[in-house]
Amino acid sequence: MSGNESGKIRYGMVIDLDKCTGCMTCAVACQQENNVPFREDETKKVRSITWLEVFYLDNGKPYPEHRKAYLPRPCLQCDADPHPPCTFVCPVNATQRDEETGLVAHIPVRCIGCRYCISACSYHARYFNWWDPKWPKAMEEMLTPDVSTRMRGVVEKCTFCVHRLQLAKDKAFVEGRQELEEGEYVPACVEACPAKAMYFGNLADSHSEVAKLAKSPEAFRLLEKLGTEPKVIYLSSQEWIHKLADNVV
């Protein structure tokens, strides 16, 4: 990437909560992109799989000082050294951080479903398949071959749409390029955001938009004090949102 002397890649996301309208398109686009299954009743939220979950926040004040905001939460792709909390505990090496990109992968076929990673994750970003995914017959035609479907008994989570990185690299290789341009690889949620509130790029490249935004005084990360070093950075001008993000009540 241009302007990145180190050549290092740390893919990260910036979500501007001031621009976010809470429309939840990101979450829908994610489900569609990643063959995320759905059931007739999805209201038991601990059993409902949403790689990109939308958290509800409010300032806790009475009417009419009450204010709310929605916070989209993909997998935060923790950059903690040497391991994210989840990969460290996996007994079968089914989840691992790719040190060339910073992406935390989870390979469902390798997963034994012990759910240790789920308890290790501080952000509820990992989901367990309590049932086999099932679609009405006709809807099987809308499953993308770019993401394999899972089965009951395994864990799954957001991958920052790593299959899009694979495809973007393919395109670059065929055009004779080793490296990707900014914007060539963008997860589905970021692409779909109608308010353009989500940004994606290389945090290690000081010239990238995400790296610049990450330095904003309005930037914060979720539960920063845990030292998990998430690569998803939020922007907000609202102090109460900053406080909630670090669980300060």
Binding site: C23, T25, Q32, P136, A138, M139, A192, C193, A195
Partner: peptide
């Protein structure tokens, strides 16, 4: 950009 309904359109088709 797109809205959540537009992004769900295939669930109507199929």
């Amino acid at each position: 950009g797109i809205c959540p309904l537009g992004a769900s359109g295939l669930q109507y088709l199929y």
